[in-house]
Design a binder for these strands. Structure first.
Length: 807
RNA sequence: GCAGAUGUGGUGGAAUUGGCAGACACGCCAGAUUUAGGUUCUGGUGCGAAAGCGUAUGGGUUCAAGUCCCUUCAUCUGCACCA
């Protein structure tokens, strides 16, 4: 078969007949199948794209043949840093390079031969789309879920520019290699923490990979504890600390503040001021990586102030140390050196006291630091109480005195969405001297991204230098004002695109509520595991926020999720230009065609694991295609008997139906490699029949037909062509997927293994469903010679499997 | 450091969840077809001469362990001072 010719032939016909157009009138049978959309960075689809899209399309076709009305859109996540960096390097405008890349990729995506309905295509960098991204921002703002505050950005002092986290990896500027520092800017945040509880609790109900669910749970990181208030000696400042171990509060020997804590300014004693300031400066200069590394040596400095422990009135020193994180809890912790590993190390280093207040309940080893739960000692009225009880009892007591309360904290931080970058959706806010930050009225959207902007990095947001963009009037008071110069994080664009797809042409609203309530949620979402905590969490957040505003009525965007694995280079390493191990799919596709390539990807790897590229598998898949073509064509050129089914035909029919059964199950669970293996076995069985039986029965023809139907989702062009060759009516994809006849899968005879003392000693064939006694007798006969002089103690029969004779 | 995953022939990878380990392929070996090579078709192929031994390692539970429990090792991923 000339792959090239049949591919373009069927792609043309599919397009002309609108085969994959979503029929809105059948939305009650909808199946929303979605792959994470592409980032148009390079001009070409690489093996990873194919690995994501090819098998996913096979799944979509399978659902279609099962009778679902499949909604399968495609689009582009088109804003973002790489295009801008490329522009800085080459001078080619991001819009130009992005749109060009998109065009190339669209062409390539069409050549995969996938079922995308391009009527619903989205490009996030078009005003028709980002108008609604800006609208999302305004709704969040209106509902108190968007706010502005000062926050640090990565700053390269040598390039004089803001760096994205991925440009500042290792604390070093990606471009010039100098140490990255921090700088505070006023930036916008989305209040995702308002949804922390619901985001956490909803996870268990999702059909997602366990690992991804665990990662999101950790990322949200809820912990129950208490807030305890310490007085500061000679001051009216109250020091609040958060702890999950209130049971250890009698063991507090010091209190530590984060260097950024504003309280430090107030309480530091004059004689310590210089030392504290020096320490804070050093901490500010330290890079993110240094700061976060737990292997880093602990440092700290005394403030000269003393805190008073509310449970026992004891005065303890207050210190500043950068192992305390300003943005978590209260930015202050109580130091219990005896029962916390970090506090222990810190106390030893600085010569602070270490005092035991917990001992092990069962007298086991409780060397310090002892961080397990136990029984309280040296804790006044709480002595003898267990840690679990004391945790709440102590907080309750403090609560009565107005010095403490139960408190839940999260690791999850609010989502910082301001980017000091050009290639993104402008933040729809106007800053007015008189009225402050004013949202752009909805009717003025979109705030268009100006085209002619100097985006070479020089320390400012590029838009700031574009006067015609910046200068505007305040929508409230009408006086001159300026626009927000920042753009939105591209994760904002991608956190709602799946809501736009079903209504992508709507220019009055982002989507029609009633309509998307029918099409959503996404029934199967397929994409890389790298998005476990960012994209997937943001999308869940935005969905819930929009639900609470009444714009939609479902709780979760992605009911079921699958991550494809990674295709590595032939050397087993991640493909990268610098390693020189990048495999381009192009050669293989030119040689074997898109279908063979797709099946190779499905057969050669476990889909969720991926693995190293291995060229030789392609040839074998190609051979498999040729085997199918031969047997199908042969079959359709022969004449048949309609005599009763012989044993050989019954067996062939049995293989046929068990193949239907396993291929159906395997496809449903994304086990593409075993599905293809089962099809290969089926083809082998057809060959065995073809070679071994002289006068063929008409059932052979049915088998060939089912083969083409079963293989169609895997090799769409190839099977559409075979379907036509067989004289069947267009299209094979309007045919129902074959259904397994359970009765036909039952074999007449079953071979059982016979074991003596669990060792394989022989085999017997018995009638299916034979009574226990017959099986035992047959098994004993089989191995009679080996049993001489031995006493049979027990016989274990595992149905359809084996007989184990214990002697 | 913590958490999770993975570890099976020369290779990619299977194994109805505790029941014949190595499905299906690649590779290799043989036979048939062919003037020959290639293609195609058929058969063989975990190791071992054999008894036997075999799922990273050492132990355990069981009639039966790749699968369950404990030990150790290696690789990968995520988190990385979250009090």
């Amino acid at each position: 078969m000339d792959y090239k010719q049949i591919e373009s032939k069927w792609q043309r016909i599919w397009e002309e007949t609108g085969l994959y157009k979503f029929d809105k009138s059948k939305v009650n049978k909808k199946f929303y199948c979605l792959e994470m959309f592409s980032y148009p960075s390079g001009a070409k689809l690489h093996a990873g794209h194919w690995y994501n899209y090819g098998p996913a399309d096979t799944f979509a076709r399978f659902k279609r043949m099962q009778g679902f009305e499949v909604f399968h859109p495609m689009g582009f996540d088109a804003f973002g840093l790489p295009a801008e960096n490329y522009a800085i390097k080459t001078g080619i405008h991001p819009e130009e390079s992005t749109l060009k890349n998109i065009e190339t990729m669209e062409g390539q995506l069409r050549r995969i031969g996938a079922t995308y309905d391009w009527d619903y295509e989205i490009k996030t960098c078009t005003p028709e789309y980002y108008k609604w991204t800006q609208w999302m921002f305004l709704q969040l703002y209106k509902h108190g879920l968007a706010y502005r505050k000062e926050a640090p950005v990565n700053w390269c002092p040598s390039c004089n520019t803001v760096l994205a986290n991925e440009q500042a990896q290792g604390g070093v500027c990606e471009r010039c290699g100098s140490q990255v520092t921090h700088k505070n800017l006023n930036q916008w945040f989305f209040k995702i923490t308002d949804y922390a509880d619901e985001l956490l609790e909803g996870i268990d109900r999702l059909d997602w990979p366990e690992k991804t669910k665990a990662m999101q749970k950790n990322w949200i990181g809820r912990s129950y504890g208490g807030e305890i208030e310490f007085d500061v000696k000679g001051s009216d400042v109250k020091l609040k600390v958060f702890t999950t171990r209130a049971d250890t509060v009698y063991g507090v020997t010091y209190v530590v503040l984060a260097p950024e804590s504003p309280i430090v300014d107030i309480i530091t004693a004059p004689e310590q001021r210089a030392a504290v300031e020096a320490y804070r400066e050093r901490a500010a200069a330290a890079t993110e990586i240094d700061r976060m590394s737990s292997t880093r040596e602990k440092t700290g400095v005394l403030t000269g102030a003393y805190a008073i422990n509310p449970v026992n009135g004891r005065e303890v020193p207050v210190l500043v140390a950068d192992y305390v994180i300003a943005s978590y809890g209260t930015g202050a912790v109580m130091g219990v050196a005896a029962h916390d590993e970090r506090d222990y190390v810190f106390a030893q280093k600085l010569g602070l006291p270490i005092e035991r207040v917990i001992k092990s309940a069962d007298g086991s080893d409780d060397a310090l630091p002892y961080t397990e739960y136990g029984v309280l000692v040296n804790s006044g009225e709480f002595d003898g109480m267990t840690s679990a009880d004391a945790k709440t009892a102590i907080i309750r007591k403090l609560e009565k005195e107005g010095r403490g309360r139960l408190k839940t904290n999260y690791r999850l931080r609010d989502w910082l969405v301001s980017r000091q970058r050009y290639w993104g959706a402008p933040i729809p806010v106007i800053h007015c001297e008189h009225c402050g930050a004013v949202p752009v009225p909805e009717e003025d959207l979109p705030v268009r991204l100006p085209h002619n902007v100097n985006f070479t990095p020089d320390g400012e947001s590029p838009l700031k230098k574009c006067d015609e963009f910046m200068h505007t009037v305040c929508p409230v008071c009408g006086k001159p004002a300026h626009r927000d110069a920042d753009t939105l994080d591209t994760f904002v664009c991608s956190s709602w695109y799946f809501l736009r797809y079903p209504d992508s042409k709507n220019d009055e609203k982002p989507f029609d509520t009633e309509w998307i309530d029918k099409v959503l949620p996404v029934d199967k979402y397929i994409g890389g595991a790298e998005h476990a905590c960012m994209h997937l969490l943001y999308a869940r957040f935005l969905t819930k926020a929009l639900r609470d505003m009444g714009y939609l009525h479902f709780d979760e965007p992605f009911v079921s999720l699958v991550h494809q694995g990674t295709i590595l280079g032939p050397d087993g390493n991640k493909m990268s230009k610098s390693r020189g191990n990048v495999v381009s799919p192009d050669d293989s596709i030119v040689k074997f065609g898109a279908d063979v390539f797709r099946v190779y990807l499905m057969f050669g790897f476990n889909y969720v694991e991926g693995g190293p590229w291995n060229e030789s598998g392609l040839e074998s898949v190609n051979r498999f295609f040729e085997r199918i073509e031969r047997v199908v064509k042969k079959c359709f050129a022969m004449s048949f008997t309609d005599a009763p089914l012989t044993k050989a035909e019954k067996e062939l029919n049995r293989v046929r139906h068990s193949t239907i059964k396993s291929v159906t199950n395997d496809l449903a669970s994304f086990s593409f490699n075993t599905a293809v293996a089962r099809l290969m076995e089926y083809v082998n069985a057809m060959y065995a029949y073809e070679v071994g039986v002289e006068k063929k029965h008409a059932v052979f023809k049915d088998c060939a037909k089912d083969l083409v139907l079963l293989f169609a989702p895997f090799a769409p062009h190839f099977c559409e062509e075979l379907w036509e060759v067989m004289g069947e009516k267009y299209s094979v994809f309007n045919q129902p997927f074959p259904i397994c006849d359970e009765r036909a899968t039952v074999a007449d005879e079953i071979e059982l293994a016979v074991q003596i003392n669990s060792k394989l000693r022989g085999r017997v064939t018995v009638a299916n469903g034979a009574p226990k006694e017959d099986i035992e007798r047959a098994a004993l006969d089989e191995i009679a010679s080996q049993l001489e002089g031995r006493q049979v103690k027990k016989i274990i029969i595992v149905p359809n499997r084996l007989v184990n004779i214990i002697v």
